[in-house]
Design a protein around this nucleic acid. Structure first.
Lengths: 223, 223
DNA sequence: GGCGTTGTTGTGCAAGTGTATAAATAGCCC
DNA sequence: GGGCTATTTATACACTTGCACAACAACGCC
């Protein structure tokens, strides 16, 4: 075990495979999110990202004009996945508005939306929104989209209860409910082990029903 | 206006004053927070911070073992100020528990606690809590302290209403109310101009009274 | 006033940063 | 199989980063 016939020359160039453009971009974006989640924006260097994606640093510039653009696309991808997952819970067919609202809250207050990694990413990026108009706009759109979803379900729920809320009242409810979900989401992400499974969802549903003045129903009170 | 007697030699050393240790440390911490708020953790370099503090970079190492330590102390200072301001609103003498709770919420949902700069700082640091145990611990302590304050006031309010909540119920109320305040705080910081002055506080108080099952009182319903 | 202490500056350095660019090679078409 | 082309690697470069260290000067003390 010493000299022998080493078939690879010492300065061998790295072997590589050509992946499709879409695949490479996705890999690089995922590697970026991983790097940011693990080491923050300062630790997300082109070399770290490339290493994670299994390529060399130079390739990044082949798919993105600059590091900034990669970061922005990564944030957009993150927001897209989050809102997509959140809204998916509203798509239940043949369910009462109230059940759909409860399902929406439950979905938002459990894995995979309650997740420390996602929270770290969200916080890291949103912390730059004050100085980066691009991030600020992306957030604003995501937030309003989310709140509008909430407002729509709330309108359905109240209508089903034969109440006729005006626009201002509806808006206030949506803001409050959105705050409840956001606040509990943060608590869950930052200190998940302090809550028993499903506890946050239960607390959230109760708080929201109180906010809307809904009388508790048997079917929503398990034990 | 050309040669003349220039009293200062070209390579003049910078004039400086010796400040007290406490003063310098404070200045450096403040400069750090400013830098982080403006350019994020990546933009908060020793040179940027020193420039802002009106000193040169080398001085930082005279007061802090390393940049990391300065950042940690800055975060601790930030958290200290935030919780201090928040709790101050609870110190009202001769006020009913319910009034004190309302004052607490109002204080937390207006300037200076609703502030984009503070939010940016909070988000930037908290985004690292998942990977940095020191930050995680600092947050945990601040959060629990805040929630305990909430729980104490809630207990007073319910007692004044002649209700006897058990510990579990109290805990759930505190979690929910904390979430409402946090969620509205975020909304206000990120999109303050979308809300009229005092609107968030009004929404928060109403939501919390609903959560606690308090009948609205005249004195809290202006117009 | 002179003197010593030490807070403060300035310079240097090795490691790491994003980006530019040339060289190489993987995979497709014929 | 032999080119062609675009993906990918590798190297280079100017610049920034945190930190070490020596020189300096502000201020208290006598």
């Amino acid at each position: 075990m010493s000299d022998a016939a080493d078939p690879a020359p010492m300065n061998a160039r790295r072997k590589f495979r050509r992946e499709g453009e879409e695949r490479r971009r996705q890999d690089l974006i995922d590697a970026t999110l991983d790097s940011v989640a693990e080491h923050g924006l300062q630790g997300a260097t082109v070399r770290t990202i490339a290493l994670r994606a299994g390529v060399t640093a130079g390739l990044i510039r082949h798919y993105f004009p600059g590091k900034e653009d990669l970061l922005h696309e990564a944030y957009a991808a993150l927001m897209g996945r989050m809102t997509e997952q959140a809204k998916a819970a509203l798509l239940m067919e043949d369910a009462s508005p109230r059940q759909r609202l409860a399902a929406f809250v439950t979905a938002n207050l459990n894995a995979p939306i309650i997740d420390q990694r996602v929270f770290s990413l969200w916080a890291t990026f949103i912390g730059r929104a004050g100085a980066d108009p691009t991030l600020a706009r992306a957030h604003r759109e995501g937030y309003l989209g989310f709140r509008n979803e909430v407002e729509a379900v709330v309108a359905e729920v109240l209508t089903a209860e034969r109440r006729k809320p005006d626009a201002a009242e509806l808006r206030r409810h949506a803001i409050a409910i959105n705050a409840i979900i956001d606040g509990l989401w943060i608590e869950g992400c930052l200190a998940g082990e302090m809550f028993s499974p499903g506890e946050l969802a239960t607390i959230g549903i109760k708080a929201i029903e109180a906010e809307l003045g809904l009388a508790p129903e048997k079917q929503f009170q398990e034990k």
